[in-house]
Write a protein that binds this DNA or RNA. Structure first.
Lengths: 338, 338
DNA sequence: GCCGAATTTGGAATCGATTCCAAAAGGATG
DNA sequence: CATCCTTTTGGAATCGATTCCAAATTCGGC
């Protein structure tokens, strides 16, 4: 195991001072051409690899972003992260990822570790952002962005869609198709990642069209999984007076719902129309394809990174909260009633 | 913007030397109880946050793993990463992730950045691992593990399943169901993540059962996406003599295939039986549910991390290559022929 | 060829935690 | 209470790149 080559070693070999060698690798203009070449040659010959840790210590920045995420194995969040990455990589930034399962304790621990590793900024995604987290971010003056959260904070930046309006659109569409018995499978009761807003959007649409929101037509899930959608949908379809249209607050749930209908021999969209939320890739390929609300998650990631960069570079961004447009995608699972 | 609290500041406040303060936070036994308490109090009072960068510089380790991955938005890889993370986090390790799209240039760049950031080890996932990468890893004596790769290297560790045997099982199963016209949609021609092995497994099974491998019954995809599966499946089903059983080398493709059959009005499994590979979560919830080969990807991630830790700690692992068991899951898409 | 200004250069000090070494304190023993 | 041994402690040196300062060099103009 041979000692790693340091910049002093390079400088010595090139016959210059460390300062000069440092200036060369940092593209500082005031280095004469011949010395520059000698240093670059030495770097080549010695296979020098800069030590980013030492650089970070002196520069007091790491070019690393900390990303808190409920679960990396969830397509929604993974796409957001990919959007962040594709913007951050060209700038030389990397990121540390942590799956927190939206658990506040894990989130606190993650943030603590990220601070210890001196990340330059933090991306927060969570179903429930604890107030202490926001306080912590504010107190420590940490560059941070809340992503896909419906939380609004006077100073902490956030990126999301208008979940309430999006849900409204989905339900209004079902109503426009002629459905009056419209049910909903929602996410957890106090979900801050848009779940509550979606439920309100459903209520808005029903109310505005003079339709009653029946007690047992609102099924609250404990999460957004296939299984939950499957179970809640079965419950709805086995009611004495089942709904003819169902809005599920997430595509994983909606697909679980389609599966449930299939098992019960209930045809979609002939017997029941189904609308999801998120527009996951599989939704287009399910049979029947799933009508759903698109969340531009890749762009959400990019927009969030843009906001974070603004904070890191000390610029004031144009706005604190960015709301991106959603889009209702009409597919087979909700075709017009005859 | 107030100056961050340093360990010297804490030591001064506690009325001890830096050495002692350092020993306290590192749980070194030889510190008298009263001084320890004074230091801990000072830490509390001053809200001291250790600077991990400085520690890493001195200790020459960062407790950070570099993870190269084709695409984080792919459920397969995301699950592997989750397995890694769940093992690494409790040990205080974090990871830097990089989506490379299996592009050798991006991979080289990523590894270079990761080295600069002084990662303690590298996880490599890629459809095509360039020989230079392996050389680089070997030359620099980098702790590294190849994950979900069929490459075998005398010294570089790897974790995977036996793709050839797994594909054999899938195809042999179709044959046992009575199918003789069995086609395959494979991955890219020189895929090293198991794709070639799966094609060979198909050939093995056909050959061993005396069945011919027809030219146009082997469709090579350029990737493993829904779209590719959809297109290749359509091509197969529109042949003059279409197959009655199709094995697709990935679940994304298989679901695209199911969609294609649905659009053509061809019923699964009545008219054509379909078997996939990977066992993605959606496969169970598709209608019909997809028969597939399970790859224990979460465990693959954990096993890989175990191997990497061995290298990092300088222990010699029991074996260089770990092959985990696969499992054929029989579901609706391949029910028995009447 | 000389002067002052502008450009280049070398090297010491710095970032913050760790660790080694020597010194100080504590404890046991006769 | 002197001696020796162990435990505890403070502080200087270290990790490797950057940056600031002062010294050295270059250059233009006359």
């Amino acid at each position: 195991m041979n000692k790693p080559v340091r910049l002093v070693d390079v400088a010595m070999r090139a016959g210059v001072g460390v300062g000069t060698a440092s200036r060369v690798i940092n593209h500082h203009p005031s280095v004469k051409e011949d010395k520059r070449r000698r240093v670059l040659e030495a770097i080549e010959e010695m296979d020098y690899q800069l030590n980013g840790i030492a650089r970070s210590l002196k520069a007091n920045r790491t070019k690393t972003i900390g990303v808190l995420i409920p679960d990396i194995a969830n397509e929604f969040y993974a796409d957001v992260v990919r959007g962040m990455e594709d913007l951050a990589s060209p700038e030389g930034y990397t990121y540390i990822l942590n799956s927190t399962d939206s658990d506040t304790d894990k989130e606190k621990q993650s943030i603590s570790i990220m601070r210890e590793k001196q990340v330059d900024g933090i991306m927060m995604m969570s179903h429930t952002v604890a107030p202490e987290m926001l306080e912590y971010i504010q107190n420590n003056n940490l560059p941070a962005v809340l992503v896909a959260s419906s939380l609004r904070h006077p100073t902490i930046a956030s990126v999301s869609i208008n979940n309430r309006a999006a849900a409204y659109d989905a339900v209004a569409y079902l109503i426009a198709l002629g459905h009056t018995r419209v049910a909903m499978v929602s996410g957890p009761a106090r979900d801050q990642s848009g779940g509550v807003d979606r439920l309100n959007g459903y209520r808005d649409a029903m109310g505005e069209h003079g339709l009653p929101v029946l007690e047992n037509y609102v099924q609250m899930g404990t999460d957004y999984t296939y299984r939950t959608g499957y179970e809640k949908m079965k419950r709805l379809l086995m009611l004495e007076h089942p709904p003819t249209g169902v809005f599920l607050a997430g595509d994983y749930m909606a697909i679980g719902g389609l599966k449930a209908a299939d098992e019960l021999g209930i045809r979609v969209p002939e017997h029941v129309a189904v609308v999801g939320f998120d527009n996951l890739a599989v939704s287009e390929y399910y049979a029947p394809s799933l009508t759903t609300v698109n969340q531009p998650r890749y762009q959400m990631g990019q927009e969030a990174m843009r906001l974070l960069f603004c904070q890191i570079h000390g610029e004031t961004p144009k706005e604190v909260s960015v709301v991106l447009p959603h889009q209702l995608l009409r597919r087979q699972s909700s075709e017009k009633l005859k």
